[in-house]
Design a protein around this nucleic acid. Structure first.
Lengths: 153, 153
DNA sequence: ACTAAATCCTACCATGCAAATAGGATTTGT
DNA sequence: ACAAATCCTATTTGCATGGTAGGATTTAGT
């Protein structure tokens, strides 16, 4: 039930960039030194963020990275999903497999709804906070956002 | 961000036992056949549940396992914590390390509160549903239970 | 054109852990 | 004694995480 370093590093990087002056490209060396993350390793995580247009990059002299959008336009959830692949706590509730593929008896499995709800709760929380929120230290989310269907959880 | 088979198997086993006639000892063979789980593997997970008095066991002829308490007296959270070790999504919010040990700069880390809140949310949900709830197919939890501090999340 | 600073790309390695298997020792009711 | 079961301790296998290495490519400035 752990978030891997990929997702954690990615999030820290995005937050770091969000704090930098708007439109300024920050070199990977600076990010890694400040955050204490292996440059070679972060270098390996970044392409995912670039490919999804979360970051824009310039190469060459004075090159680096910056956020492609406003910090308030990223949810933490999408950043993590981008690097982790999924936020589902078990394979069989993963949207990628259409809710099956992993096991062929999800319908009868009494524990399946537990994981589905858990997945929902996790996603709702992480999708409700933005990179800007993290910068601002705001983590309390309105219950209305989390429970917009009005059906309890 | 995955729950391992240890936790999933343990939960399924507990639910299976909860459905069995009260006070009847069920052999591991029966459980494994019904649930389609490797006997040798589940045999390895069980000691944790026995040690924590979640299950009681009898050895020898006609031996087996049964729940030590009423199904409504177990939360899903404690079962998972027992087998998974922790439900914390990152080391640095793990209660075992007292909130540090993993990293030495949790105080300044802007992402730390995200993980702490996430951990809280996950725990609150899983601690609010019982094995009996799983048997009954009840997974909707009152918002009051999840947000008992009245402070949003 | 040259150079230095940077991203980009591809491959490789090492460690740990999940998941499962194996083989037997022990207990217990009949 | 026997059979059915739990208990115990190793061992194996595979894979993902986390990290390293080396170089190719791009770019700005001189």
């Amino acid at each position: 039930m752990k978030v891997s370093t990929r997702g954690r590093y990615a999030l820290r990087m995005m937050v770091y960039l969000a704090k930098a002056p708007k439109d300024e490209f920050i070199s990977l060396s600076e990010i890694c030194e400040s955050e204490g993350i292996s440059k070679k390793y972060l270098e390996q995580i970044i392409p995912f963020l670039v490919r999804k247009k979360f970051l824009s990059a310039t190469r060459g002299f004075r090159g680096g990275y910056r956020l492609a959008r406003d910090p308030s336009a990223y949810s933490v959830g999408e950043v993590l999903r981008c690097t982790e692949g999924t936020l589902a706590p078990v394979k069989c509730v993963d949207a990628h497999c259409g809710g099956r593929a992993a096991c062929d008896h999800c319908d009868e499995c009494p524990t399946h709804p537990v994981w589905r709800k858990l997945s929902e709760i996790v996603s709702r929380y992480l999708d409700a906070i933005t990179i800007q929120d993290v910068v601002d230290g705001k983590f309390d989310v309105d219950q209305e956002i989390l429970f917009e269907d009005g059906s309890g959880i």
